[in-house]
Design a protein around this nucleic acid. Structure first.
Lengths: 346, 346
DNA sequence: GAACTTCGTCGAAGCGTTTCGACGAAGCGG
DNA sequence: CCGCTTCGTCGAAACGCTTCGACGAAGTTC
């Protein structure tokens, strides 16, 4: 493995000159630059990341901290990651994904204090998230995907849930639906302070009330069975429902299955809209789901851009931005068929 | 940020002594050790990863290279990652995930040559995989998930596709099915030399032939539409089929949808087995899918264990291991109903 | 053309660790 | 009680890079 010394010797310049060629921190004449570049190529020189990091006190590594639960990463999260990785690469940083679970607060503290990460993007932020505190205390530059309760001192990018829900509701209301049930994440998730669940709940209430309609929300476990149970609960609370709005990629398949099981067809009997869903998942269902598609890769890109700007520019700037999901109409929504309410169902 | 110097001064010992306490490379008296430990705690000392890495020539970081396509990570891959992360943590390593796409061979070469990764686990290996060559040339210790064509010099852990297919086929044959169609990945994927697709194809042929049955395989695009098309093709080739075996988590939903669309019920008319599928995904379908569940987290754990053993032990040992998937019977398989072949269907 | 800048390069001092050789103090067999 | 190991500790030299101050040489300005 060739070092900078070898390159300098071969090019007959000093080590510092080689360094300046590499980093561009000082002007170097074209002739010298060429000599150095040639030597580097000849030796197949690659700078040693550790030495560089030690001397410059910047690793040029960005961390993307993603809690990995057993559910896996949806296409949404994946788009997010690829968007972030691409942006990092453009900015001259490596992006590493760290699967830190919720319990590893100590692990996180260690990671942060070891000066191995120049900055961090945090996914799946809770309203009150200890990880934020740990990272802030360790002095690691930070950008959130999602928001904590108090956003005053933080940079974040998040989905504009308010706007997204409003648009979804408007779509259904525009088709003529009046009785719309919102299937949210589980009660436990709500209780744990998961921002998206809380924000969509409130947004749904506001949107429905704004249309003069009664908001009905059901909490569903993140499983197919949870979706089935949720649909049963929905019919119990609102027998005459004609549309379901859901933000729960797992439960939605249970909802669909249960609908079919009850002899109801989508979209003729019940319209279904899935929120924060990727096209890929929306296409899995039959019929394909009308969905609010999340701006996954844009979120990732923007988060990284905000972070690198923060690192490279000396500015102490905060970046706060909300992006709405885009309505993509597929086969699961239609005007309601005027039919008899399900009455004594279930 | 406290350094080792600060700790040494506070504990009134030399820097090297502090280092020995930390690394355990030389004996240290209990008394001294306690002094040092106390000083470290008092200063909230964290070793600087870069300095450590530079001096010791080992970063204690392991890379997990996973191509991220837009499909997202299934629960199988996720289990894999979490298994690997846990094992790395136990062995005292950090695990970082690097979303290197297929095109970034240069990026990979750079990553490998920068001495930032002590070792690498490579996912989604092709039969002829350039990444392997690049990494080997860069001298980075390597463990594969999956296998290249020539495995003689490599460490790997992989699914035992032969055994898995045999078991799946035996399950169906045991139920009385004779006419079984295998839905594989796309023709393009097969052509690109994707090991699992190739190996299961051959294993299926062998297993069916072993039972005296004719193997019928259909290549399906990785999409719901691909699954529908595949089922149509299957009925065209084998109108009297009573069972479908599939290894394509995306297509399977299309298959299921198309089956329903043709008025065929699962499992009464057609049994369905999904291979290399996680319980979570299997439960999404209605009825829940009988599946060959992949040993995801074990694969990850074993890969990392093999890698760390290779790094810590001086031995030049190779680790080659195959793990079968486990048959989990759910609601999508049953004995075939004796019914009229579909005849001029489609 | 004297007095300043700017340009291009060099040498050397770090960055925070690990690790090697050295060395006094014990412990031990004979 | 004399040589030998072993134990516990120290000082100093790496590790491979960045960055700072310095300094001729060349341009600029009046």
């Amino acid at each position: 493995m060739a070092t900078m010394h070898d390159v300098a010797r071969l090019a007959q310049v000093s080590v510092s000159t080689v360094s300046y060629v590499l980093t561009g921190t000082r002007p170097i004449s074209q002739a010298t630059r060429n000599k150095v570049l040639a030597a580097m190529a000849q030796l197949d020189y690659q700078p040693n990341a550790m030495a560089r990091g030690l001397a410059s006190r910047r690793s040029r590594i960005l961390g993307l901290l993603m809690p990995m639960d057993e559910r896996g990463l949806g296409a949404t999260e994946t788009a997010f990651v690829t968007g972030a990785a691409a942006a990092a690469s453009v900015a001259g940083y490596h992006l590493v994904l760290s699967p830190v679970g919720g319990g590893d607060l100590d692990d996180l503290r260690r990671l942060a204090s070891q000066r191995m990460l120049d900055g961090v993007v945090l996914m799946e932020v809770q309203l009150a998230d200890e990880r934020v505190t740990v990272l802030q205390e360790a002095g690691v530059p930070l950008v959130l995907i999602g928001r904590t309760g108090d956003t005053s001192t933080l940079s974040y990018v998040d989905i504009d849930f308010d706007q997204t829900v409003r648009e979804a509701v408007a779509h259904l209301v525009g088709l003529g639906h009046r009785r719309i049930v919102y299937v949210n994440h589980s009660a436990a998730t709500l209780a744990s302070g998961y921002g998206p669940a809380l924000r969509t709940r409130d947004a749904f209430t506001a949107a429905m009330t704004g249309h003069g309609l009664e908001p009905v929300m059901i909490a569903a476990e993140d499983s197919a069975a949870g979706g089935r149970a949720a649909l049963a609960a929905a019919f119990a609370q609102a027998p005459e429902l004609t549309a379901v709005l859901a933000m729960n990629e797992t439960a939605i398949f249970g909802i669909l299955g249960e609908l079919t099981g009850r002899g109801l067809s989508v979209p003729d009997d019940v319209s279904v809209v899935s929120m924060v869903t990727s096209p890929q998942v929306a296409e899995l269902a039959t019929p394909a789901l009308t969905a609010m598609t999340s701006p996954g890769s844009a979120l990732g890109r923007i988060a990284i851009e905000a972070l690198t700007r923060h690192l490279d520019g000396p500015a102490d700037l905060r970046h706060q931005q909300l992006l709405p999901c885009a309505l993509e109409i597929r086969g699961s929504t239609a005007p309601p068929r005027s039919r008899q309410p399900m009455g004594a169902d279930q």
